[in-house]
């Protein structure tokens, strides 16, 4: 449940609707009612406003804190740190990006084994987004030229297949052609 919320763009879209729809409902109700049905000043008790105010702020804080705590385990920053200290054998995939190609060092990527992607840009800003064969973005990284350390994170693939890599930072007139593939094979055990 939380997996599909925090590990997919559609989960994010669902969260926007979750925040938006109740707002729209209440907003339009109040505005419509107080403009066209009964624009007389409300007779609501002052105490009630204060109570409502407190409830509203409490609810907002609760939702905000809840979402951001629940998401911690799904942050690649957190899962990368976890994988790096787990003692597991990590496959290193180093690459560079320049307009408009990626250049990978040779590596065999297996299902179930953590892969550390580390990339540097040699000219301008580039992205490195890995797309699942279904078209879903697994993760994206931003490569800024001139950095001493590469941009890097650890990802563990769960399915074999051919994954598409795209640059998601606009990098000039052939940006849309900056594309590559990585092949993930079934683990040998």
């Amino acid at each position: 449940m939380l997996d599909s919320l925090f590990l997919s763009g559609w989960g994010a879209f669902g969260m926007v609707l979750f925040l938006l729809i109740p707002f729209l409902f209440v907003f339009f109700y109040v505005v419509f009612r107080k403009s066209f049905v009964d624009s007389n000043p409300g007779t609501t008790d002052a105490k009630k406003y204060v109570r409502l105010e407190g409830m509203w702020i409490g609810l907002v804080v609760l939702v905000f804190v809840g979402v951001n705590i629940a998401s911690i385990g799904y942050m690649p920053t957190v899962s990368t740190a976890k994988a790096a200290t787990s003692g597991q054998d990590i496959i290193d995939v180093n690459f560079t990006a320049k307009s408009w190609v990626f250049d990978f060092a040779e590596a065999t990527i297996e299902v179930g084994r953590p892969v550390r992607f580390s990339g540097k840009s040699l000219d301008t800003m580039h992205g490195f987004a890995v797309y699942h064969p279904s078209g879903k973005v697994l993760f994206t990284m931003m490569l800024m030229p001139g950095m001493e350390k590469p941009t890097s994170l650890i990802h563990t693939f769960t399915e074999p297949g051919t994954y598409t890599v795209r640059c998601l930072e606009y990098c000039g007139i052939a940006h849309h052609e900056m594309r590559d593939e990585i092949v993930v094979i079934k683990g040998t055990g």
Partner: peptide, 19 residues
């Protein structure tokens, strides 16, 4: 604002940034 806070969450940012 709803779209902005969602994409500012670290977990979601890694899926949405650049899209």
């Amino acid at each position: 604002g709803a779209s902005a806070v969602v994409t500012s969450n670290v977990a979601w940012s890694f899926q949405l940034h650049g899209t």
